[in-house]
């Protein structure tokens, strides 16, 4: 007999041992929460970082990637515009990316040092050959937005 089932039958990849192919095709809904402000900032060619507003906080660092709350005192932070120039702290060129990668390869990943920022954000170099210590400036993808961190890249100054 045939049992009527929805969808196509699974493809058999191997009979002995039996291996079948399950199809998965759906979307994940990625919520940025309070961090959405950072991605809105990229659309306006701004790098938005956060700083703690608690007068008692011992650190009051400028964070980029931003955090909505301070890891040192757990108080809310305020949004501040960070400089859009930086120097390359380290780099590596991706040649064999994982499946969903959207940028073109080879893709030079870079970590950047920005004055006043306590972190070394990961990003990528849009043009040129990366060198440690190289001064770079931020460029923004403002058309055909991905609304991901790929909308921020850097080029040599």
């Amino acid at each position: 007999m045939t049992i009527e089932l929805n969808g196509t039958s699974a493809e058999v990849l191997n009979e002995e041992p039996l291996v079948i192919k399950n199809l998965k095709n759906w979307h994940h809904i990625h919520s940025y929460g309070g961090l959405g402000k950072f991605f809105h900032g990229l659309r306006k060619r701004k790098l938005l970082a956060t700083r703690c507003t608690n007068a008692e906080c011992q650190e009051k660092r400028l964070w980029l990637p931003p955090r909505c709350q301070c890891p040192d005192c757990w108080h809310d932070m305020e949004w501040v515009e960070a400089p859009t120039v930086a120097t390359i702290y380290t780099h590596s060129t991706v040649l064999y990316p994982g499946a969903p990668f959207r940028a073109s390869i080879p893709c030079p990943l870079i970590s950047v040092e920005i004055e006043g920022v306590c972190t070394k954000m990961m990003s990528y170099l849009k043009e040129g050959k990366p060198e440690i210590g190289m001064p770079v400036r931020a460029v923004f993808n403002t058309e055909a937005l991905t609304n991901t961190i790929l909308d921020l890249a850097w080029v040599p100054q």
Partner: peptide, 13 residues
């Protein structure tokens, strides 16, 4: 996932 994974989807990098 917010600030890194899209950059290569590759831990070796």
């Amino acid at each position: 996932k917010d600030f890194e994974s899209e950059l290569g989807w590759m831990y070796a990098s």
